[in-house]
């Protein structure tokens, strides 16, 4: 356990070496949250409009909570892995008595904690400035359990994309495209239950709603009647994505040449 804690603190130190880089990254994330927020604020702010089951307060709360949980579920350093495979740095992990998956999960925890910490302040600014009446978070423990599942699914999906590096050097484009689609289908821009019923139910079969959409809904107190089924589905996706990532890792390691690297 101590070794993984040390990986977390060492990652913090790495971030502190590039403070400006981190500040600019936060600025980018803030702008992205703010744009979605402004858009919805323009639509529902000060008006008595209802979208699906959402009114002004619950819709704006959804956007802000979803973006906060996004930071936790999706914040990752695994984007570096493809590059590390291609330039051979990954060898350093293979030679150490440490699990590669746990090593990167620890790095991710550092990344998530740091990003969530800053995101709370940023979202706080929007809440205060636009006088948003936030819904009081409910079912915190249940939401956290769902978020944990979502975090694991996101971790394994991101690792899988990076493991493409074992077979090709062109990983950036598929990753970019994938995460663009994921952002749309996982509820970063609007609550997924605004989709027509059949599409929404179809989406529930994919891993995307489990990343941070469902945890946010639970936090808003909107627990679906099929929550047990959703919990089971999320667990299935954690298991499946883990197995697939493990398979890619084993195959990649066996077939990769590290030739001249």
């Amino acid at each position: 356990m101590r070794k993984y804690l040390k990986i977390v603190t060492t990652t913090f130190k790495e971030y502190s070496a590039y403070r400006l880089n981190f500040i600019l990254w936060r600025l980018r994330m803030f702008i992205s949250t703010a744009i979605t927020f402004f858009l919805w604020f323009a639509v529902v702010g000060g008006k008595n409009i209802q979208f699906g089951s959402y009114k002004e307060s619950s819709l704006l709360s959804y956007i802000l909570f979803a973006n906060l949980l996004y930071e936790f579920a999706m914040g990752t350093r695994t984007v570096d892995v493809a590059g590390e495979i291609n330039n051979g740095v990954i060898i350093n992990y293979l030679l150490k008595p440490v699990s590669f998956f746990k090593y990167y999960l620890s790095r991710d925890i550092a990344d998530k904690l740091l990003n969530v910490f800053f995101a709370i302040f940023e979202i706080g600014i929007l809440v205060i400035y636009f006088k948003v009446s936030l819904v009081i978070p409910k079912n915190i423990l249940l939401a956290f359990l769902f978020l944990l599942n979502g975090t694991f699914i996101s971790f394994f999906l991101s690792l899988m994309l990076s493991f493409l590096g074992f077979w090709t050097t062109e990983v950036w484009a598929p990753r970019f495209l994938f995460f663009m689609i994921v952002a749309f289908l996982s509820g970063a821009y609007f609550p997924l239950d605004l989709f027509p019923g059949p599409i929404y139910h179809l989406l529930l079969l994919t891993p995307f709603p489990y990343l941070y959409y469902l945890p946010t809904k639970i936090l808003l107190g909107q627990v679906d009647s099929i929550i047990v089924l959703e919990g089971a589905m999320a667990t299935v996706w954690v298991f499946l994505s883990y197995k697939l990532t493990r398979l890619m890792w084993d195959r990649g390691n066996k077939s990769f040449s590290f030739w001249g690297r």
């Binding site: 070794k3 040390k6 060492t10 130190k13 790495e14 740095v89 350093n92 030679l95 440490v98």
Partner: peptide, 20 residues
């Protein structure tokens, strides 16, 4: 090839290895 972390002092990489 480097195994040391580029942006921080070598001593920090040593303490990481100590735990690993």
């Amino acid at each position: 090839r480097n195994q040391l972390i580029w942006d921080i002092p070598a001593y920090d990489s040593f303490t990481l290895n100590k735990e690993i």
